[in-house]
Nucleic acid binder design. Structure first.
Length: 321
DNA sequence: ACCTGCACCTCTATTACATCA
DNA sequence: CGTGATGTAATAGAGGTGCAG
């Protein structure tokens, strides 16, 4: 598979996004390292309790307003904080993320810089974005325009209003996502025009859609690995019983040649986690491309051997540091 | 050839809003 | 009607990549 975004090779990103999450292990980021745990949590769907959500809200607001520990915050508090934020930072006022930019001369197609998270409020972080190419007008434009897509009358007080995409819009986006999970700027602009959304909204939708896809895939992988583990555990028990039977037989009778024909399996099995097939020792079960995700696990052959432990997340290609 | 800064991109985690039961 | 759970749009920030100087 090959796709270019902005003329660049995105194979790397696609591999991360849609490839099996099994491949995520090699990551160095602590954030990414935590992904499997989240995946496990997701496998047994538990959502944040409201208390926790509120606490998280506090923490988030702590970017500007450190939250008192152990205190809860209501939506009213949220709005007070937002209003305060606007008071403290007047440049926040009038920014309505649901409003399309003015469709003036500035090319909505390209919307330079707006495709980056840095282009919206995140630019407050000051991480980058000196107004060079874009002329630095996106933020003003983002709040200045109006479009029929926004009928919520939002915008006051600095609280963010959330747009719900219509079914038709979602359907079109889904169709587009089926064709390609990432968009180049032209595709993004075309979709945005077609759906009467801002390119940034299309981009965010694809971003979230990729995240959902990956989460779902992770859940599937998790289930698959759980089944694999159960199967192996059962197989392990069976083999242990067999060994005990053989030992008992050996105590009762002198060794007979045919008993040795039922020798225990090789000391190691190589298993392909995706197809769950076991290959002969030393030979991967599957084609060469799957070799990266092969898991070689010791299989205890003694009656007191431990239950196999699954070292599951392997094989992400090393990245440039 | 190597380094550096910039622009742009994606990803993950989180927040916050809308809706439903 | 209030409340918690859930879905998802939007934001924040980290880090990768390509390119120009």
């Amino acid at each position: 598979m090959e796709m270019t975004v902005n003329g660049r090779d995105t194979e790397h990103h696609l591999g991360l996004g849609l490839g099996l999450s099994l491949g995520m292990a090699g990551t160095t980021s602590p954030v990414e390292a935590a992904a499997p745990q989240r995946a496990l949590a997701a496998a047994a769907p538990v959502t944040l309790g409201r208390q926790q959500q509120l606490q998280q809200s506090w923490n988030g607001a702590g970017l500007f307003f450190p939250a008192p520990s152990g205190e809860q915050r209501s939506h009213a508090d949220d709005r007070r904080l937002a209003a305060l934020a606007c008071h403290e930072m007047p440049f926040l006022r009038g920014i309505d993320v649901n409003r399309a930019p003015a469709t003036g001369g500035a090319s909505e197609d390209e919307e330079p810089g707006a495709s980056s998270p840095d282009s919206t409020l995140s630019s407050l972080s000051g991480k980058r974005r000196a107004p060079t190419r874009s002329g630095g007008g996106e933020q003003e434009r983002a709040g200045a325009g109006s479009d029929d897509e926004d009928d919520s009358g939002a915008g006051g007080g600095g609280s963010r209003k959330k747009l719900r995409l219509s079914k038709d819009q979602s359907a079109v986006l889904e169709e587009s996502f089926k064709e390609h999970s990432t968009l180049n700027p032209k595709q993004k602009a075309a979709l945005a025009r077609q759906l009467r959304l801002r390119p940034r909204q299309v981009e965010v939708w694809f971003q979230n859609r990729r995240a959902r896809t990956k989460l779902k895939q992770t859940e599937v992988d998790c289930e698959s690995l759980k089944r694999c583990c159960e199967t192996l555990t059962e197989e392990n028990r069976r083999l242990q019983r067999e060994v005990q039977e053989l030992r008992a037989l050996k105590l009762l009778a002198p060794p007979a040649p045919h008993l040795y024909m039922r020798a225990p399996p090789p000391a190691t099995l190589t298993m392909c986690p995706s197809c769950e097939r076991v290959a002969p020792s030393g030979k991967p079960a599957g084609d060469e491309s799957r070799a990266a995700t092969m898991v070689t696990r010791p299989v205890p052959t003694g009656p007191w051997g431990p239950v196999p432990v699954l070292p599951v997340f392997v094989g992400r290609p090393a990245q440039r540091s």
